[in-house]
Design a protein around this nucleic acid. Structure first.
Lengths: 339, 339
DNA sequence: GCGCTCGGTCGAATCGATTCGATCGCCTCT
DNA sequence: AGAGGCGATCGAATCGATTCGACCGAGCGC
């Protein structure tokens, strides 16, 4: 029998007699041949069936972030039925090392996805453009030739800030995500605002401004983690003229701030109000429920999946912005009356 | 110029004149050819440079587990320098769906890794054997032809239990990981012990027995998550003759039990002692520090990486067992005097 | 001056599957 | 009975890079 017949037998497509098919399968079993070699198939098809996903910077850090996880989960759920696999690509964690992971340069992938599509001059984008790999950017600024998926960060943060204003707060501080790749930690002076290079941080900060608020303090954190929120909260709430409300750019940061407040003997929300961003479930804050801007995380992953699908269908880069909504919990309340 | 010369120019191997090399690169730039196509290279090499990793069952659940994350991180760190990529393969989460993810059957991979290498009759192992893909099993029972990486679960749990014994505890309960794929939740009667199919759960339970203890209650949880620990703790500590110590099979479960105890108004460790397993940092338990069996998570990932490396070097399946150590924190103390 | 050697370049085979067009019977319709 | 049609099978080209052996010219030693 010929190779072409065997191929027909395995693929199932094309006209083939049942008897021949069985004969091929028997022969395959005898030679313990276990189906077509994926590499040959991929070369012929010109498709690897693989989507490279750059998850934040270091894996350890990204994977501790429930936000990334849930988006990734939504993405995988969408890609699975399309017979696409997800190749994990570490972002550049080590400033001394290469700017982009070698996988990004050499691995076979049909489409690349950059979660946390960060800063404006990202070298990863250059590498992908050079290779001609279609790219989906999550939470980055829109670029020509690059598909993007984002949420209404700015509007959501504006809404949260307006909620605080309506409760009578005037001394509002902000705890933010990193400003740039150097990931500083601490108070940001007004004259340092120009090194704000991370798109998502900028947009969420702009939302506060949109509500007409100038924060009494801006605290930058190196990553969205509870411990950094705790550090920020401890610092911000230990000052004599402490803020009465703290708007955080993520739920993990916010929950750290709440923990810090509790440790300092402050009541939430009677003494200080705290708001977050993301809409996570935070069981360890129980019985408190965080006031937060809820973003549709699984849908975001699905939207990324659809953007990938569109690329593979030969359509151009797509652009999608998902809505957010404010969820009012128990961590925000009326501003304390001045004493 | 010829294709072979071009290949030499790009690979850098083989004798090639600098002038020719430059000419090739210029021509490549002119035709905007961006280096060799990975698929052709892979087909020729017979290697895809990809390691398929099956992470627990559903991605959402696995990624909420810091243990998986840290092992995965250690693995990626080891694989990166070897120019190997990690392909994420969802485990079988949906009992109605296919037993193994199609990726496991069709994706190109040089080696497969199964984290949480679970139950004895795992259909994934069959699929991989059929394909002839070398396989590394984490926390599974040793099998011929399959490399394995594990820790001394049994000894560690024995040590933790002996620690509780030395504090005078006699009424010791156990909160366990899932027994089998059905993932029940609740008290396990003694006559149901035979459906204990998950290797890791069995070994950790055996460790308790090794110390000479018969648990006064065994509570099975569907997954290693804080909320399941809280449910278990609430149930076990609400009974009139409650245990004075609870040995948990994971830190997340243990932290849930501690939270439940606090909610019930019980003091830890004065009223009830709690021990965990894994050695995670649990900031939300602060200022308490969990007594736990510490396992080297990043090293475990690295060990998996080395097992992969050994396979690719043509060596047979390797086997590795890593040591654990007991870390005594503030959540265990002398048994309360009987009233 | 002749031949040998070595650095550099080129041809061609190979990895494994897919797929288009061609071929070959056999059945059916007229 | 002859011709047309259709279902089944086969050949051969193709995807793109790697690599072994062959080949060619120049330089060097005898």
């Amino acid at each position: 029998m010929s190779v072409s017949t065997a191929s027909l037998a395995f693929s199932g497509a094309g006209p083939i007699a049942a008897a021949t098919r069985q004969r091929v399968l028997d022969a395959a079993a005898a030679l313990d041949y276990s189906g077509p070699n994926p590499l040959g198939r991929q070369l012929r098809r010109g498709r690897s069936g693989i989507v490279g996903v750059v998850v934040g910077d270091s894996l350890r850090r990204s994977f501790r972030d429930p936000v990334s996880i849930q988006v990734l989960d939504g993405l995988v759920s969408t890609l699975g039925p399309l017979d696409l696999g997800v190749l994990l690509i570490p972002g550049s964690s080590d400033p001394a090392g290469p700017a982009v992971d070698p996988l990004l340069e050499t691995a076979a992938m049909d489409v690349a996805v950059i979660m946390w599509g960060g800063t404006t001059d990202d070298p990863m984008l250059g590498a992908l453009r050079r290779r001609g790999t279609p790219t989906v950017l999550v939470e980055g600024q829109p670029l020509p030739d690059v598909a993007s998926v984002g949420i209404d960060d700015r509007g959501g943060m504006r809404e949260a800030t307006e909620h605080l204003l309506s409760l009578g707060h005037t001394r509002i501080a902000s705890v933010t995500l990193p400003f740039d790749r150097s990931r500083g930690e601490g108070l940001v002076a007004l004259d340092q605002m120009d090194h704000l290079d991370w798109e998502i941080t900028r947009r969420r900060l702009d939302g506060v401004t949109d509500a007409g608020v100038t924060p009494v303090a801006i605290w930058e954190t190196p990553a969205s983690l509870v411990e950094h929120g705790r550090t920020a909260g401890t610092a911000l709430l230990s000052t004599p003229d402490r803020p009465t409300a703290i708007a955080c750019q993520s739920d993990l940061l916010a929950s750290g701030v709440v923990l810090a407040a509790r440790e300092l003997g402050l009541r939430v929300p009677e003494d200080v109000s705290v708001s977050g961003f993301d809409g996570l479930d935070l069981p360890w804050l129980a019985p408190d429920v965080l006031t937060t801007v809820v973003q549709p995380l699984a849908e975001k992953g699905a939207a990324v999946g659809h953007a990938v699908e569109a690329f593979l269908a030969g359509e151009g880069p797509t652009r999608r912005m998902l809505p957010v909504s404010l969820r009012i919990g128990t961590t925000t309340g009326p501003a304390p009356t001045v004493s």
